[in-house]
């Protein structure tokens, strides 16, 4: 488990601690680390609560060091074939990208695209 943020557990009024996990081969794109504890701002630049759509962009821009962004995001959407689970529930049940992050949420990205 790697702490990829300098202040991982710090939850203040302005930040939300979350756990992001990558499995099914996606961890390869994120420094081979399965779990990433992040502390994200509670509001985006426009003052709206941060949602998964924001998180995905954040992961792409700030967390992912691999250059193969298209393995994770295609046309501004999570690549088809990658499942997103919010606290174990399919994100389709939670409003997909518009789901507003809550403190201590577990967001899991699972690729179904890789072989075995």
């Amino acid at each position: 488990m790697t702490e990829t943020h300098p202040k991982p557990e710090m939850a203040s009024e302005n930040t939300i601690p979350i756990l992001v996990e990558f499995t099914g081969g996606l961890e390869m794109l994120f420094s081979d680390e399965r779990k990433h504890r992040l502390s994200v701002p509670s509001k985006d630049d426009e003052g709206n609560p941060v949602n998964i759509g924001w998180l995905v962009k954040h992961l792409c821009d700030k967390v992912m060091k691999d250059s193969r962004k298209e393995m994770f995001v295609l046309d501004d959407h999570v690549r088809p074939g990658i499942l997103v689970l919010v606290n174990d529930a399919d994100w389709e049940l939670e409003g997909e990208a518009s789901y507003a992050l809550q403190p201590n949420d577990n967001i899991l990205f699972v690729s179904t695209l890789h072989g075995g």
């Binding site: 499995t23 099914g24 081969g25 390869m28 074939g81 499942l83 689970l85 174990d88 399919d90 899991l108 699972v110 690729s111 179904t112 890789h114 072989g115 075995g116």
Partner: peptide, 21 residues
């Protein structure tokens, strides 16, 4: 469905390995 296979493995906490050739 592949999606359900992955979800089954996830919810049953099966031990599997993913690798890209």
């Amino acid at each position: 469905y592949e999606k359900e296979i992955v979800l089954y493995a996830h919810h049953k906490k099966l031990d599997y390995f993913t690798t890209e050739c």
